[in-house]
Design a binder for these strands. Structure first.
Lengths: 134, 134
DNA sequence: TATAATTCCTATGAATTTAGTAGGAATAAA
DNA sequence: TTTATTCCTACTAAATTCATAGGAATTATA
């Protein structure tokens, strides 16, 4: 966080997939057009989501992407953890590499914020988000 | 967020100032040495904090910086709002510039996350943070 | 078998942001 | 007048972000 364009795109695409039901693979071309996301950029994003196991791909003609889980079982946290290099509010919250870690008065706060954000994002499932669509 | 080095430095410096009491101006040189923050970089940060009214400066010999508020009345949110270009979790949460804003299924979530983060950061005062020091 | 539509793979690049660095002018105390 | 400080403006190296480019591999279908 700030969530990158990549993360925002990923979330939107996953919502779009969820909204389609999961009957047949949706080609990247359609997702790209609907959501107005650059085709080649979205390609990279889908690859990451596929590697993480959130979508599966069907290659060749009539190919495309499908969700691997039901929309009720996939949260915003799941998705953003894939695309964002870190969800940590502050760098220091994750790493043990800071020499000040032992005594830093701010570290507990960063850790707590991290947890609060993760808890927040876990509450939003794709099913919730699809129902927001108008 | 992710909070930049600038923001983390700013928070630490403000805690250091609070820990000193507020009897006489603390020169940047000392803050820089204590907190191991590059002198010239910290200079820029103090300028921003001063412009925002969180510290006041005394120029000339024996000069330095002082808090303008009591540590109980200055929160992490106050400080980070100054140094971070935005505290928004996602860009779109702030701006009215996104053409999708009207119907975007993710916008309400970003807005809510924003508010949750702000509420979280408002709970930490400098007084709280100073008491974390060991 | 040929064709068309798709994903997969690897590389490159422009713009922006971040985290500093540099030099000196202005100010004020002693 | 010296010394210690803040103030002001500009520059820069590195990393990150947001893509773009070209073609290879795969699969359905006519």
């Amino acid at each position: 966080m700030i969530v990158s364009a990549k993360g925002r795109y990923a979330l939107r695409v996953m919502i779009a997939l969820a909204a389609r039901g999961n009957s047949e693979p949706v080609p990247l071309k359609e997702l790209s057009a609907e959501e107005e996301i650059p085709h080649k950029f979205l390609e990279q994003i889908m690859t990451e989501l596929a590697k993480a196991g959130l979508v599966e791909s069907a290659r060749g003609k009539n190919g495309g992407y499908l969700l691997t889980r039901s929309p009720e079982e996939c949260t915003a946290a799941d998705i953003l953890r894939v695309t964002e290099s870190t969800l940590a509010a502050a760098e220091c919250a994750g790493g043990g590499d800071c020499p000040r870690a032992e005594t830093c008065p701010t570290l507990p706060m960063w850790r707590a914020l991290d947890e609060a954000m993760d808890d927040f994002l876990k509450k939003y499932t794709l099913a919730d988000l699809v129902s927001q669509r108008t």
